[in-house]
Design a binder for these strands. Structure first.
Lengths: 345, 345
DNA sequence: TTGTAAGCGTTATCAG
DNA sequence: CTGATAACGCTTACAA
């Protein structure tokens, strides 16, 4: 439990001033490279570590980025965070991560914590029931930059990072139509959230473009839980004319619904072709494997973090690029393929 | 982008000394409760927020706890973290969370980051290939407390929080035996990790206690990935005498294996009864629903965080309680029930 | 019950 | 290229 080494200790031993040591350690250009080396090696030898608190106090910044996400327990989010961590580490930023558990109340509390922690910037994906961004006003007022990703909401001077959910919904639906589906059901989440609203839009557009009518009875808004998937299967079972295609805005729910449909004697994709969303690993657990939309999680995390850091370092004015669209990919698997696939039975 | 309010500002307006303001804000007993109220309301009115960096610098502590986990993308881990966040927030501690992605190399890097961030304490669940705790020596030397949870390793002066994995493995296996299984296969992970080693021990003990012999060919060490589950199904398919019971140390892998077994014509639980581990939501997606061992994630997170915080606050000497065992529960579902269940078909 | 003043470890400014 | 010095905002002996 020895005392921490400070730049004063190094300075004393090297007969230099603390200022010089500080500059050397920060690779200041005005320092002789010999002294730099000498200081660096002495610092390592003594086990010196910079005191972030003194440094933060002095510089009035924290080198910390706050991250607020709805939940941590999805494969997608885990890859997003891995991407953010990678970029943040490389740029010597720390991450403070918290989950809102889909509740705006907790999101408000998280925002307050982040504010009190004086994060330099914020990366946020909104909770299901968030209706406005008022709880981030303190950040906006102080000019602390914030980037929204995936679950976004239009906001002046705030970059958004998403995939084109309308187009993805369109592609998913069009794929089902191409496979011969004519009565396609769409099961989605709270359409307050852009991701669900947009996928629904894409679904409707695809139907219209292919000369099919939009039947509101075939659009189901739920919370996309396992339970919702089961109930939907039950609902379909009791429909006078059940759908021949099903587009679910979330793999997990799609998978639970598929299971129940199969148990009720529906054949997939024969009776009902199914497409999910996210390319979660469960999509490859279910039989038949689930067709889905691949979401570039790692990339989304990296780009969000990098954009924020660039902005903080003055390398990129964040409000010039207001929305960044990432590429997605429709991954076709057996659950929607009516033309016999060449892969595993 | 106004200037931050400090205790000096409050002091000036209230004709008090900064010291009094500081004490009042920290609820120091020696301050008149009237002045306390007056200061508190003024502080709120002015939008004062404490500067953690100045405070940390002065107090030589950070009120920050570091968390290192193998991955964030499991339901289990998400609930653990929710529990930790809850406790930490209530006690005014911050959490810095990072994932090792099951790699000891990244775990080492994470530990270094945590050390440089001067966390007051550490909550760790080890990566798959971690062989020793040398990378935490800096913490031990400085007397920074560390608690291991779930993926643990014996270490002096370091509390461990786990369930009794031996007993849980024993119960899972015994349950299969009670359902009439006589050739029970066990599929588990890297037995460097206590959780897998112990579940294997429990499996062997249960067999022996019930007069069954342990057949090494029925013990399969893998990485418990989806792929491993599929391969295991293939392996079973080609066995001269396939098992009639299967105990997998992880729900996700169990589920992938079950899917492939079904596709290969095995009936579950008829031909092979299956038990998983963790009570992951996927266990209720697969048909038949998977029997599994419920893991108390939220509780584990809460207890880990609370124990660490108690130690930091001097309320509990951490080395007196060296291992905390939490209760688990065998959740019996259709995948292992040969006596017809009363629930959904 | 309140005030005074020193100091936590850095970094920025100004001077040399 | 290097040094002296003054902050940054807070806490805590010690005094009153």
């Amino acid at each position: 439990m020895e005392k921490d080494v400070t730049i004063y200790d190094i300075a004393r031993l090297l007969q230099l001033s603390p200022a010089t040591v500080s500059r050397a350690l920060n690779d200041h250009p005005a320092i002789n490279s010999n002294t730099k080396h000498m200081i660096a090696s002495k610092a390592k030898e003594m086990g010196y570590r910079s005191n972030m608190f003194a440094s933060n106090l002095r510089r009035q910044r924290t080198s910390t980025i706050g991250v607020i996400v709805p939940r941590l327990d999805s494969y997608f989010m885990s890859t997003v965070l891995a991407g953010m961590e990678k970029v943040a580490n490389d740029a010597n930023y720390n991450l403070i991560i918290s989950q809102s558990l889909e509740s705006v109340k907790k999101e408000v509390a998280n925002a307050k914590t982040m504010f009190d922690s004086r994060v330099d910037g914020l990366l946020v994906s909104l909770a299901a029931d968030t209706e406005n961004l008022d709880h981030f006003n303190t950040f906006f007022q102080k000019g602390i930059p914030m980037i929204l990703f995936d679950r976004i909401m239009p906001q002046k001077n705030c970059t958004n990072i998403v995939i084109d959910n309308v187009k993805a919904g369109y592609d998913a639906t069009s794929h089902l139509i191409e496979q011969g589906c004519r009565r396609i059901m769409h099961m989605t989440g709270n359409i307050k959230r852009n991701v669900y609203e947009d996928r629904l839009k894409g679904y409707k557009l695809a139907l219209m473009d292919h000369g099919l009518t939009v039947d509101d009875a075939l659009v189901q808004l739920t919370n996309l839980t396992r339970q919702d998937g089961l109930q939907m299967a039950d609902h379909i079972k009791h429909m006078a004319s059940p759908p021949d295609g099903l587009f679910v805005a979330n793999d997990f729910c799609a998978v639970s619904c598929m299971g129940a449909l199969k148990a009720n004697g529906f054949s997939i994709p024969g009776d009902i072709a199914v497409v999910g969303f996210n390319n979660d690993p469960v999509s490859q657990v279910i039989e038949p494997n689930l067709t889905t939309v691949h979401y570039p999680g790692q990339e989304m995390g990296e780009i969000a973090a990098q954009s924020l850091i660039n902005h903080l370092n003055g390398l990129l004015r964040i409000n010039t690029t207001n929305t960044i669209l990432l590429n997605y990919e429709l991954v076709v698997r057996a659950s929607s393929l009516r033309t016999p696939p060449a892969e595993s039975r």
